[in-house]
Simulated assay, not measured.
Amino acid sequence: MKHRTTAGLAAVALASIALTGCASGDDGGSGNAAASSDGNVCEVTPAAEPSPAPSPSEEDVAAVESIEVSGPVGKEPKVTFEAPLEVTTPTSRVVDEGTGEELAEGAQVTINYVVIAGKDGSTSGSTWETKKPESFTLGDPQYDLLNDRLIGQKVGARLLMASTAMDQTIQVTMVEVTEAKEIPTRAEGTAVEPEAGLPTVELAEETGQPTVTIPADYEEPTELVVEPLIEGDGAEVTKDQTVTVQYAGCLLDGTSFDSSWSRGTPTSFPLNGVIPGWTNGIAGQKVGSQVLLVVPADQGYGDQENGAIPANSTLVFVVDILEAKAA
């Protein structure tokens, strides 16, 4: 499921994906499944591009130009305007261009931001206050309001934007890019011979996107299956970290329900904020590894239907662990 919102800003979950309880057959997962003599084949295809937002009107541009920003780069700014502030479509302006490294698609950027309610000018969230900057991959469709506005800018840039929040109110967001880092796009390390009888994984040569085949006679496990396919040489992941991953998720019948590969960019999220099968399966693995997870329902969504995932479903994931850092 895709949100046309400002990143995960102001209470929009950072990882708005199946793992957090938001599965959807039209977000990244193609829903495609094929049967063969070897079993059920799970493939993912690119998701449709979102429709572009309308161009801001002269009134929208004037409204954002009227917002005053004061304070130095690196500190929480003071943002003031005459309330209520209204715009009809996302409208932005660059307050400071930045002097650091240029921001390119695929880079992992870290931002601080403050969110102000357009109706009364009250602050509804600030990473400067919580001391918890947010990181994401430029190009991730979940951050579609920031991608085009930040690509080509530089570290240190400050972006001011007014847009409609998920609750349909207008919010003003001041974003500052504090860091940019290039990370791998796929797992790199030593191939591991998997245990016989498990779902098999074939990787696209250029992208590393997996195709998963579930054997026709495969029996649902009662316990979590964690099978390394590639062992990386990075640090060991802990449950309290935020991880950046590429992943694909399938049902045992071969239905694809979610995939970061189909969205085109890795995804970052706190490991302690996802389903138990992920928390328990990824913790202890090394950065750079690729892991096959077969998650029984009691470590997934249990007896609850979740979007494209039926109740009591066993889930199969292929996960490339690209980075892990303090949450």
Rank of each mutant, 00 (worst) to 15 (best):
I183W: 01
S122R: 13
P133T: 13
W278D: 06
K181W: 00
A248Y: 01
L251M: 15
E68G: 03
A157F: 03
K78F: 07
K2M: 12
A104N: 11
G21V: 11
E195N: 13
L138V: 15
E223W: 07
R263N: 07
A33N: 09
G125M: 12
E43K: 14
V79G: 03
V115K: 04
V109F: 13
V95C: 10
N40D: 05
D233M: 07
M161E: 15
S122C: 01
Q209R: 15
Y218Q: 07
R149W: 00
T222K: 15
M1V: 10
V94D: 06
K181D: 08
E223V: 08
Q209E: 15
D320M: 03
A326Q: 10
K325I: 00
V64E: 10
D38E: 15
N306F: 04
Y113W: 14
A283V: 00
S55E: 13
D120P: 09
G21N: 10
S124W: 00
D298K: 11
E82P: 02
G264M: 00
P72C: 06
I183E: 01
M1E: 10
S37Q: 12
L271S: 04
F269Q: 02
A107L: 14
K131C: 02
Q108K: 12
L252K: 04
S51T: 12
L322T: 02
I183S: 03
E231S: 10
V12H: 11
S135N: 10
V41R: 12
V316Y: 06
D253C: 03
L146I: 11
E205K: 15
P310I: 00
G249Q: 06
L252S: 11
D26G: 06
V87I: 11
C22P: 04
N112S: 15
E59S: 14
E97R: 15
T45C: 05
S36N: 14
T6I: 11
A180H: 05
G307F: 05
P210F: 00
E231G: 01
D27T: 10
K286N: 13
P84E: 06
G29V: 05
V64T: 13
G156V: 08
S36A: 12
T242F: 00
I275T: 12
G234L: 12
E219H: 05
T80V: 12
T211N: 07
S36F: 07
S126C: 08
A48C: 09
P46N: 14
N40H: 13
V237T: 09
P72H: 08
G71C: 09
A180G: 06
L251N: 05
S256P: 04
D217G: 09
D320N: 13
G98P: 14
A324L: 10
S163V: 05
A7I: 09
A7D: 09
V64C: 13
A11R: 13
V237Q: 03
S122D: 10
G8F: 08
L160T: 02
A191R: 10
I321C: 08
S122L: 11
P296Q: 07
L103P: 00
A311Y: 04
I214Q: 08
N280M: 12
Q108N: 12
N280D: 11
Q108L: 15
V172G: 01
D148K: 13
S24I: 03
A216E: 13
V226A: 05
V243D: 00
T178R: 15
P141W: 02
T265L: 04
L19A: 14
A180M: 08
L9K: 02
A35L: 14
T20F: 02
G29N: 03
A157N: 04
A13F: 06
K2C: 00
S30T: 12
G125W: 02
